[in-house]
Computed example of a mutant assay.
Amino acid sequence: MSILKRRPSMTLAQALLVLGLSAAPALAQDTAAPAPQPSGQPAFVPQTVTYASAADAAAAAQKFAEEARSTYPKGSANIDQALWTQAASAAEAAVLAEPDNAGYLKLRAQIYTEVGFWRQAEVGWAAYFKAVPAVPGSREAQQAGQAQYNLGYSAYVRNQPDLAARYFAECLKFDPQSAQCAGWAARTALEGGDYARAQTLYAQAVALTPADKTLAYFRGLAQKAADYGPAATGAFSRAYAELDAGRKDRALEGFQAAARSAPNFAEAWRQAGRLALDMGNAQAALEAYQGAIALPTADATDRFNLALAQEGAQFGLDAVRTFRAAYGRYTAGDKVAAESGFQQATVQNPAYAKAWAWLGRTRYEAKNYAGAAEAYGRAVALDPGDKSSAYYLRLAQQGK
């Protein structure tokens, strides 16, 4: 006779309290200390349901799960969806009735994994693996690793690196072929100053996904991290994560902090400069590329971007970019498009003498002498020392 049959008056919620599976996430044994509920995952409140037997409860859980998969959009599974709530509640009832039944334990863990309820998934897999020892790399172990990975990432974004590192390490125990866990375990090691371990883990991650340029990039960074120190390396890595998440302002601050902490950190200066240019912050870009250009590793790209930042700080990045695009069209032979671009640059910043000068040149070459005289006149007024513009201004005024 099942537990539920013998105790018909006990609600599922009451029974869960007896087992320590209340609405608050339970502690998983033999795993890293659990983190608070990850953001975006409300506490699960099981429905009050009763079933004649554990088998009936398990069958109901499977039925509700199948209905949920066919009802809700693919990839949207969530514990708040009614059918998934019913599936999880029924699975809990099955486990409550027969707590040593491996099939029911796995069913419950799989449901929590599918809906992304990672704290309860961790608890569920821990219970299942007590009944059936984990086989690293098996389908079940991979699902348990998925829960550990998500808990680790949640801890990482809450700035709990030690806890995150433990979760990622647990993930690798379950799923040694998980490139994402190897990569994030490497990142936490890198930020923690354990450069040897970071290099080993990045090598493992790169071997698993050779085409992942980000992993290869950070593998190279780990090899040079000792030259920059943990403060700069940690700030850089965090900034990269902020950039991945789309938080550009915070990412820029992080790259700047890394570069200022270790002025020899060329890639920190470059990342700050590239991001600042992308954000239209010419002054920040100027500071960044001045830092990069001062190092022996400075290259032609650094010099090009420094010039862009310098000119952008004076005339505005939009106008400078428009001018450079127009110049590219001019050198390609499309002088009509170039003229239009140079004119647009003068509209974006009427004080941009060079744009006026090149607008004059395209008009002069098209024998539009009146238009050329107007443009060259503005260029000379803004930059009296521009002898070339003064010369062609006289020619344009003479119509020759």
Rank of each mutant, 00 (worst) to 15 (best):
A179S: 10
W184Y: 10
R219I: 09
Y327W: 07
Q314D: 10
R361Y: 14
N101W: 01
T301L: 13
L83V: 01
W84I: 02
K367W: 04
L17A: 11
N305T: 00
A307Y: 00
E242A: 09
Q160R: 08
G137E: 08
F44R: 01
A189K: 01
Y369D: 12
D383I: 06
R6T: 12
L286N: 12
N281G: 02
D299T: 08
P38S: 07
I79G: 06
L12H: 11
C171Q: 10
F323A: 13
L12W: 11
E170T: 02
A94N: 02
S89V: 08
K130M: 02
A147G: 12
R363N: 14
A65P: 06
T188G: 05
L107H: 02
A370P: 10
G360K: 07
L12T: 15
R324I: 12
I111Q: 03
S22C: 06
Y376F: 15
Q86T: 07
G193D: 05
L105A: 04
N368S: 05
T209K: 15
R260G: 01
A55S: 13
Y289Q: 01
A186Y: 11
Y112I: 04
R166H: 02
G152L: 14
R187S: 09
A165S: 15
T11F: 12
L19Y: 14
D302T: 00
Q110S: 15
Y330A: 13
A196N: 09
Y104E: 01
G385R: 12
K400T: 13
F117P: 02
Y51A: 03
A282L: 07
F255Y: 14
S340D: 10
R250W: 00
L12C: 12
R378H: 11
A258M: 06
T297P: 06
E170A: 02
A307E: 15
L295M: 07
A61F: 11
W184G: 03
A222F: 15
A326L: 13
A155P: 12
G254N: 08
M10Y: 07
E122A: 12
A179C: 01
A23R: 04
A87N: 03
D194P: 04
Q343S: 10
S22L: 04
A235M: 06
A61N: 08
Q41N: 05
Y240P: 01
R329W: 04
Y51R: 05
A319G: 00
G152D: 09
G229N: 10
F236P: 03
A93I: 13
D299S: 04
A268C: 14
A87T: 08
